[in-house]
């Protein structure tokens, strides 16, 4: 292992979320293609997605897309904004803040009632 800093960490996350999103897209193409076999198959698969595990992974998917998008903007700024390399760490912290500000209400909206409901 190399003891890198913020840059290495965000690079790793960018890769992992990128591969994750790609996997989702492949699965998504497969499940949507089931419609060609008729509505029966398609509906059965869709019913599966109502399962709590899938609900939670939908939140994870949203988080991955959000991080990947925000980090993409950051990488773009580092490359093409003249002061980007100076502020790359600050940009990352800003990115983290934006990520949580967006993520908390969205996660609440997506699974809040369902998670809280199972707790109480």
């Amino acid at each position: 292992m190399y003891r890198g800093g913020v840059g290495q960490f965000s690079y790793l996350l960018h890769r992992v979320t990128g591969v994750g999103i790609l996997l989702f897209l492949l699965v998504h193409i497969a499940d949507t293609a089931l419609i060609c076999l008729g509505p029966g198959y398609y509906n059965r698969i869709m019913a599966l997605y109502a399962h709590p595990v899938f609900k939670l992974s939908e939140v994870a998917l949203f988080a991955a897309v959000l991080f990947h998008a925000l980090n993409g903007i950051r990488v773009f700024l580092v490359d093409f904004w003249e002061r980007g390399t100076v502020y790359h760490k600050k940009l990352f912290y800003l990115e983290a803040i934006v990520f949580f500000v967006v993520m908390v209400p969205v996660a609440y909206k997506m699974v809040g009632s369902f998670v809280l409901g199972s707790l109480f």
Partner: peptide, 29 residues
């Protein structure tokens, strides 16, 4: 270059490597 910045931290001469790389990228674009 994926802007990882390990190079900047590693350079024993304190060269701002990512800045140089970004300048080359901008010169290309």
């Amino acid at each position: 270059c994926r802007t990882v910045f390990n190079c900047a931290e590693a350079c024993p001469r304190g060269i701002d490597v990512p800045k140089a790389i970004a300048e080359v990228k901008r010169a290309l674009v």
